[in-house]
């Protein structure tokens, strides 16, 4: 029996549907009333999903930022490994409310969730 699920997003936005699908799955779990303790952790290229300034309409796709915001609107918690984001794009403005964390903190997050679902 599990009471907590961590959605681990490793893929960047728009090239693949993975990140969007992960955000929607986390949202679905959150609203289910069954697996409410669901959170999102962004690592690697997945950290790019938190970057402001995305214009998904440029490629006719739904917004990954909006998908993350929807999750946070339901009090969903999102973590983002700061080092991975900085390695890729340097200083970047990120979606307000996303928790920027270190790798040590990310490991603690992983340890505190029973199931990990990678996207």
């Amino acid at each position: 029996m599990a009471e907590s699920l961590l959605v681990l997003i490793t893929k960047g936005p728009y090239g693949l549907e993975e990140a969007f699908a992960g955000a929607r799955l986390a949202l679905g779990c959150k609203v289910s009333g069954i697996m409410e303790n669901a959170a999102i952790l962004l690592i690697g290229d997945g950290t790019l999903n938190a970057c402001m300034g995305q214009r998904s309409e440029a490629v006719g796709m739904p917004s990954n930022l909006a998908a993350l915001q929807d999750f946070m609107d339901l009090e969903g918690v999102i973590y983002c490994v700061e080092q991975d984001l900085h390695q890729r794009v340097g200083e970047a403005e990120v979606l307000e409310g996303v928790n920027m964390i270190t790798w040590d903190q990310a490991r603690e997050v992983i340890g505190s969730y029973q199931l990990v679902n990678t996207f």
Partner: peptide, 14 residues
């Protein structure tokens, strides 16, 4: 659905 089925499956899973 995710809401009804995956969420329950995950909650039952070890």
């Amino acid at each position: 659905s995710i809401t009804n089925d995956f969420s329950r499956m995950a909650s039952e899973a070890d």
